[in-house]
Nucleic acid binder design. Structure first.
Length: 268
DNA sequence: TCTATTTGACCGTT
DNA sequence: AACGGTCAAATAGA
């Protein structure tokens, strides 16, 4: 077991280092932007691949650890992010949602709608979101995201296969503000009986449900500065005109990476 | 026929 | 008991 753990750790570190190096190379080539678009897309594909592989490895170790832990210790970090957006409320956020409820809320002028990930049953994805018109301005929606997606959606896969060629939905809403984000620890009473599996055609990972997770784990100065950019974007009430959910997709990927790494830090 | 939405009922928490 | 979140049967629509 020790040997397996050592091998896993080296693999993870190697994948993450490669992803970091590629990201810096891309950054170097973009500024100034004299590099061809094809070269950038190639690098992005390699970066996504490295992070996918690292996540898959970490998730496997996480599940192994969960299997060894008593139920009373099966805790997971749970993230919540609140966005304010204009438009129809049906903003284009990459993921597919299925409405499962609507409630009138005490003291609120408009009901709150409840959505869960379409892939809850097929992939065990536990991400949910709530949407409600604000009392102050009914044209502005408060969107609360809970948990992170463990599923891989078709659009997400297309994004990774064809970076920079995404098309935006006609009715995409504009995100006005990231109101706040918080993290809490919740106890999961259900056993994790999902296992990770690999796409037969690619190395892309389909991860088990792992509702999670943001933390402050730091890996070196370089990554810290990289993370700081994102943290500043999401933790302060910030005007984010031009911010799109394509950006959020990347943001979520990054948050996933961090939290998984904290798990593996505990593991070791 | 299949999938998504609607909506009243139900349940856990406070 | 009130409230918020979820369930599930009924309904809509492609």
């Amino acid at each position: 077991m020790e040997n397996a753990g050592t091998w896993d750790r080296k693999s993870v570190i190697s994948e993450l280092n490669q992803g970091r190096d590629l990201a810096y190379e891309l950054k170097r080539q973009i500024y100034p932007s004299t590099t061809s678009r094809e070269a950038c897309e190639f690098l992005l594909g390699k970066i996504f691949s490295s992070y996918d592989n690292a996540l898959a490895l970490l998730n496997c170790m996480d599940i192994l650890e969960m299997g060894r832990s008593p139920i009373s210790e099966r805790k997971a970090r749970w993230s919540e992010q609140v966005l304010l957006c204009s438009g129809t409320g049906q903003i284009d956020d990459v993921y597919n949602w299925r409405k499962y409820g609507q409630k009138d809320i005490l003291g609120a002028n408009h009901p709150r709608s409840y959505y869960r990930c379409t892939h809850r049953n097929t992939q065990g994805c536990l991400a949910t979101k709530q949407v409600k018109r604000t009392d102050e301005d009914p044209s502005i929606f408060e969107v609360v995201y809970r948990g992170n997606h463990s599923c891989v959606q078709e659009r997400q896969k297309r994004n990774k296969e064809n970076v920079n060629t995404q098309t935006k939905a006609e009715n995409e809403g504009q995100i006005l503000e990231v109101a706040h984000e918080k993290v809490e620890t919740r106890l999961f009473s259900e056993p994790r009986d999902f296992i990770p599996f690999m796409s037969p055609s690619t190395s892309e990972s389909y991860l088990s449900p792992s509702p999670c997770q943001v933390n402050d784990f730091v890996i070196g100065n370089d990554l810290q500065s990289f993370k700081t950019d994102f943290t500043e974007t999401i933790s302060n009430p910030t005007s984010v005109a031009n911010f799109s959910f394509e950006d959020l997709d990347i943001l979520i990927d990054h948050v996933d990476f961090d939290s998984y790494f904290l798990d593996v830090a505990d593991y070791f």
